[in-house]
Deep mutational scan, measured.
Amino acid sequence: MFKRLMMVALLVIAPLSAATAADQTNPYKLMDEAAQKTFDRLKNEQPQIRANPDYLRTIVDQELLPYVQVKYAGALVLGQYYKSATPAQREAYFAAFREYLKQAYGQALAMYHGQTYQIAPEQPLGDKTIVPIRVTIIDPNGRPPVRLDFQWRKNSQTGNWQAYDMIAEGVSMITTKQNEWGTLLRTKGIDGLTAQLKSISQQKITLEEKK
């Protein structure tokens, strides 16, 4: 169930391209415009997507990853294993993690069937560096609404905000991946996880038929 919630949630996290980005210092504006741009692209490019579902990787690479804190999220997933990894191991892992996100997020976007969304009203940021933004996803086919909290983090150097995690039903996506990959990290280390991520990233994206 959580895996499905995570995939549905990713439908609204794909941010804007650099040329049309919203105010990078306001995570609420980023979330709002990102959702609108993403849904528009999914709707307008269905012919290309249906002809070649792996085209979704391109959308992810162009529109999402430049505005997601990939390395920060990847380091959180590694936890204690990050500090013990060599620079070469980290570089290989982050490259594999990025390719994994292209496949995983692309597969999530393949679930698009006309969903709509509501974003919580903007709250004062103050001096906060981590801000959760509640998004409610509404399914046109009558499924119950899904309420999610996207975690946005302020870059201490640039002042810009980027998304790095999502919490559904009190469970963090980062925590879920830590639990899912924990045994592999304990037995085969970061190299074993890197190899698995490379394998997963090679899987073809498949479209979910409308139910």
Rank of each mutant, 00 (worst) to 15 (best):
F2V: 08
F2S: 02
R4F: 12
R4I: 15
L5Q: 00
L5R: 00
M6D: 01
M7W: 08
M7A: 03
V8D: 02
V8Y: 15
A9T: 05
A9C: 14
L10W: 10
L11F: 10
V12P: 00
A14R: 03
A14I: 11
P15K: 15
S17V: 13
S17N: 13
S17T: 13
A18S: 13
A18G: 13
A18K: 13
A19N: 01
A21S: 10
A22N: 09
D23K: 05
D23T: 08
Q24D: 13
T25L: 09
P27Q: 06
P27V: 10
Y28S: 11
K29L: 12
L30S: 08
L30K: 12
L30M: 13
M31R: 00
D32R: 07
D32K: 04
D32F: 05
D32W: 05
E33V: 13
A34H: 04
A34Q: 02
A34T: 13
A35R: 02
A35C: 11
Q36Y: 06
Q36M: 15
K37E: 06
T38A: 06
T38C: 07
F39P: 00
D40R: 12
D40G: 15
D40A: 12
R41L: 03
K43Q: 08
N44A: 13
N44L: 14
Q46W: 03
Q46F: 09
P47N: 11
P47I: 08
Q48E: 13
Q48R: 10
I49Q: 04
I49G: 06
I49C: 14
R50I: 15
R50D: 11
P53K: 07
D54K: 04
D54F: 04
Y55S: 11
R57H: 15
R57G: 12
R57E: 15
R57K: 13
T58L: 08
V60R: 00
V60S: 15
V60M: 12
D61S: 09
Q62C: 05
E63Y: 01
L64W: 11
L64Q: 01
L65E: 12
L65N: 06
L65P: 01
L65A: 05
L65G: 06
P66Q: 06
V68L: 15
Q69L: 01
Q69S: 13
V70Q: 10
V70D: 10
K71D: 01
Y72V: 01
Y72N: 02
A73I: 03
A73H: 03
G74T: 00
A75P: 00
A75C: 06
L78A: 03
L78Y: 01
Y81K: 11
Y81E: 14
Y81D: 11
K83R: 11
A85L: 05
A85T: 08
T86M: 07
P87C: 08
P87A: 13
A88G: 11
A88N: 10
A88R: 08
Q89K: 06
R90Q: 04
A92S: 10
A92R: 10
F94N: 13
F94A: 07
F94Q: 06
F94E: 05
F94D: 01
F94I: 09
A95Y: 07
A95T: 11
A95P: 13
A96L: 10
A96Y: 15
A96K: 03
F97P: 00
F97S: 08
R98S: 11
R98P: 08
Y100Q: 15
K102L: 10
Y105L: 03
G106K: 00
G106V: 11
Q107E: 13
Q107P: 05
Q107A: 07
L109F: 15
A110G: 10
M111E: 01
Y112L: 04
H113S: 06
H113L: 03
H113C: 06
H113G: 07
H113F: 04
G114P: 04
Q115P: 03
Q115K: 03
T116L: 15
Y117M: 08
Y117V: 06
Q118V: 12
Q118Y: 11
A120Q: 11
A120T: 14
A120E: 06
E122S: 09
Q123N: 10
Q123D: 05
Q123Y: 05
L125N: 08
G126W: 13
D127S: 06
K128T: 07
K128Q: 07
K128F: 13
T129Y: 09
I130Q: 02
P132Y: 03
P132V: 12
P132G: 07
P132L: 12
I133A: 07
R134Q: 01
R134G: 01
V135R: 00
V135Y: 03
V135C: 06
T136W: 14
T136P: 03
T136K: 15
D139A: 13
D139E: 15
P140N: 09
P140L: 14
P140A: 14
N141M: 11
N141P: 11
G142C: 08
G142L: 10
G142M: 10
R143H: 08
R143L: 05
P144I: 08
P144D: 03
P145W: 11
P145M: 07
V146G: 08
V146D: 02
V146H: 04
D149S: 03
D149F: 11
D149A: 03
Q151W: 01
Q151F: 05
W152D: 00
R153M: 01
S156P: 03
S156W: 01
Q157K: 11
Q157F: 06
Q157L: 12
Q157H: 08
Q157I: 11
G159W: 09
N160W: 04
W161N: 00
Q162I: 02
Q162T: 03
Y164F: 14
Y164K: 03
D165Q: 00
M166H: 01
I167M: 13
A168W: 04
E169Q: 05
G170P: 00
V171C: 05
V171A: 03
S172H: 00
S172C: 05
M173F: 06
I174W: 03
I174R: 03
T175D: 10
T176K: 00
K177L: 07
K177E: 10
N179S: 11
E180Y: 02
E180K: 02
E180L: 02
W181E: 15
W181L: 14
G182C: 11
L184T: 06
L184Y: 05
L185M: 10
L185N: 09
R186P: 00
T187E: 06
T187I: 14
K188T: 11
K188F: 04
G189V: 01
G189M: 03
G192V: 06
L193H: 08
A195R: 11
Q196H: 13
L197M: 11
L197F: 14
L197P: 02
L197E: 05
K198P: 15
I200Q: 08
I200D: 08
I200E: 09
S201L: 06
S201N: 15
S201V: 12
Q202R: 09
Q202G: 09
Q203V: 14
Q203I: 14
K204H: 12
K204Q: 05
I205A: 14
I205K: 03
I205S: 09
L207S: 09
L207W: 14
E208A: 14
E208V: 14
E209S: 14
E209W: 08
K210H: 13
K210T: 15
K211M: 10
K211C: 05
K211N: 10
